[in-house]
């Protein structure tokens, strides 16, 4: 059983995502939602860091928040899974604990 980490602040503005990735344990799940989704574009400067993190963590991004900001799932860094609200619930119930990096 692993932990689900959620991050909802822009990684360009706050260090929440960086700190989360630095503390999450191998096998943990990470879900980016709300303003945090702005960091997931494949052409962006965080792409490398996210691709590295995806080697040991299960990275996810919330689809409705991507759509809200006009980001096509095809633009998302490879290795990050797009989930809907149902997927969010599944991640929550299968996790041992949820750590919200507010």
């Amino acid at each position: 059983m692993s932990t689900l980490h959620t991050v909802n602040k822009s990684p360009f503005e706050r260090s929440n995502l960086e700190s989360c990735l630095g503390h999450a344990q191998p096998g943990d799940a990470v879900l980016l939602l709300e303003d945090a989704v702005v960091g997931v574009l494949a052409g962006g400067i965080l792409a490398g860091k996210l691709a590295d993190a995806a080697q040991t963590l299960k990275l996810h991004v919330l689809g409705p928040d991507l759509a809200a900001r006009g980001i096509d799932p095809a633009q998302v860094v490879a290795g990050i899974t797009v989930v809907d609200y149902g997927g969010f619930v599944d991640l929550t119930v299968t996790a041992k604990a949820v750590n919200a990096w507010l």
Partner: peptide, 23 residues
């Protein structure tokens, strides 16, 4: 500038998060 550039992003569809699309 900074994340503000996303305000002008094409194709915004925030109905799914219950927010009005003002773009």
């Amino acid at each position: 500038l900074d994340d503000g550039v996303f305000q002008l992003k094409k194709g915004q569809a925030p109905a799914g998060i219950g927010v009005k699309n003002f773009s």
